[in-house]
Design a binder for these strands. Structure first.
Ligand code: NAD
Ligand code: NAD
Lengths: 255, 255
DNA sequence: GAGCAGTCGTGATATTTTTCACGACACATT
DNA sequence: AATGTGTCGTGAAAAATATCACGACTGCTC
């Protein structure tokens, strides 16, 4: 399946000033990532009394080029003022809209273990419109307990809850084992967005949004960076034909 | 005002322009991300008895092109066999080395609140070489408690612990307020890699690796995807001159 | 009001990342 | 052993992404 529609206008080589904002498939991921970062920084700067932020400031803070920040702002429809920068109020308002944080999004939390409890108790996602409407678990010893103001409900009640409250967003904090099945079930029940914390790459239909928040991958990246900076990591594999040491770990096919 | 000084060595400002960026002669970030994903999938497939995996299988699972998988494998120095695929043993061994997971990495955990406790109890990071050597907190009521087999220690003991055990990796699960200061302090004490869960973008010197595991940004992205797929997100901002609704939050210049 | 300094806006350019096309090789079957 | 099918390997093309260079505009100072 290709999520890429080959609808490329052949004559549109010249860049039109309308940016690529009206692309129905949303913004490219890297841009989106930076946009959310701008939102966060703008929020924190605003709380410190700032009225505006410059592209150079953002760029320096994040470690990217200032031009890129300006392009991003343009893509989001944010207009800055020379000599001043971007008005924080406008940045927040615009990104609120662009990121879709304007209205509240009710979600259910599946799995109330260590991580699920932390999420249930965390208030920081409220700013992004997330409202945990209910918490579910299969463990009888956890059902009925109150976690972060939510009473843990049995999974048996999940189906009707989704249907009655038209829940479309689910946070999946259950074990990896069975995560895909749970996700499939949620999708069948009508869930359209899944925030997955289990260390598996969930597969969902095309009309469902999924974000695999795979912390282990982040850790792997950090360790890689760490080793590279330390210098004791021999990454390069320049020899293209070198049929060097075969891993003698066994488990190879019976030849 | 760009007076946001990273409170580090005074002359380092010019040098750490790319500090927050990640690629330091290592692999580009997207590639690295996929590599870690292959590692995870290969692990799980291996546990199910598979001997080899094909590029097509990985591509289909992740939702990318099979050619890209093969390029990635080549970049990591992994050689496959036609008609068979990539030997899982080789994939794991090679990625172990490439990602730097071969030897154990001792780390300290700073902040043992909801999220910190979940991390301390989680065993899943062990596969990536991470070993939590100690847990620290400032809250007197938490000190002395046992969390995931670790006794929570007071921050006062953190300095000597880092020095004695030559700790180079820190997991930061303390509140955002003061996270940067804590990070600066850790860096001064010799920490070379920080896994940051506070919702701020940490600034560190060039020789320190940092991964900002900003969950809120992930949430923002999920919500954006969700809204776009639902169709009720009007992103485009074509009107270039239309002085439409100015944010009435003040902060506008008087003409 | 004129000049200066700082910042945005954007077309052109460079770099990186991904896809396409096709040849080569390995295993299975007859 | 010959044939057939499925998979890897890789150079070239395409697309996406980031940077450069420079013009335009704003606010400040004098
Ligand atoms: N704790 C962490 O720091 C951490 C870090 C990264 C990833 N994760 C992942 O997050 C998930 C949860 O981690 P955790 O540490 O909270 O585990 P946990 O074992 O503490 O909690 C899992 C909870 O899910 C419940 N559960 C099991 N099957 C369920 C089902 N089918 N439906 C609903 N609930 C179900 C269990 O009863 C339990 O309460 C796991 O997939 C884990 O790999 C956790
Ligand atoms: N809980 C979540 O689901 C979640 C999600 C995303 C991000 N976060 C972020 O993770 C961090 C921790 O979240 P939490 O929910 O565990 O918060 P928490 O308040 O439950 O825990 C924070 C802990 O850090 C300790 N602490 C405070 N200052 C410290 C310092 N200077 N040094 C060492 N320890 C210190 C506190 O005593 C407390 O135990 C926060 O920055 C939060 O924004 C949490």
């Amino acid at each position: 399946m290709k999520t890429r529609e080959p609808s490329g206008p052949p004559g549109a080589a010249a860049r039109n000033r309308r940016a690529a904002a009206d692309d129905a498939s949303g913004f490219p991921r890297p841009l989106l990532e930076r946009l959310a970062l701008y939102y966060q920084i703008a929020t924190s700067e605003g709380e410190e009394g700032q009225d505006a932020i410059s592209s150079a400031f953002l760029a320096e803070l994040i470690g990217i080029d200032a031009t890129l920040v300006r392009k991003d702002m343009a893509a989001a429809g944010i207009t800055g003022r020379p000599k001043v920068g971007y008005a924080i109020a406008e940045v927040l308002a615009r990104l609120d809209s662009v990121l879709g944080l304007t209205d509240r999004n009710d979600a259910i939390l599946i799995g109330c273990g260590d991580l699920g409890s932390a999420i249930a108790r965390y208030a920081g996602f409220g700013r992004y419109g997330l409202k945990i409407a209910a918490v579910f678990d299969v463990d009888p010893t956890k059902i009925g307990r109150s976690v972060g103001g939510h009473v843990v409900l049995p999974m048996e009640k999940c189906k009707s809850f989704i249907e009655i409250f038209r829940i479309q967003i689910a946070i999946l904090a259950a074990p990896a084992n069975g995560a895909q099945e749970t996700a499939d079930w949620l999708v069948r029940k009508g869930v359209k967005a899944i925030w997955n914390f289990a260390p598996v790459h969930l597969r969902v239909p095309d009309d469902v949004a999924v974000r695999n928040e795979n912390l282990a991958l982040g850790l792997a990246q950090l360790i890689h960076m760490f080793k590279v900076k330390r210098g004791n990591l021999q990454v390069p594999v320049p020899a293209p034909d070198a049929a060097q040491t075969e891993p003698e770990l066994g488990a190879k096919r019976t030849g």
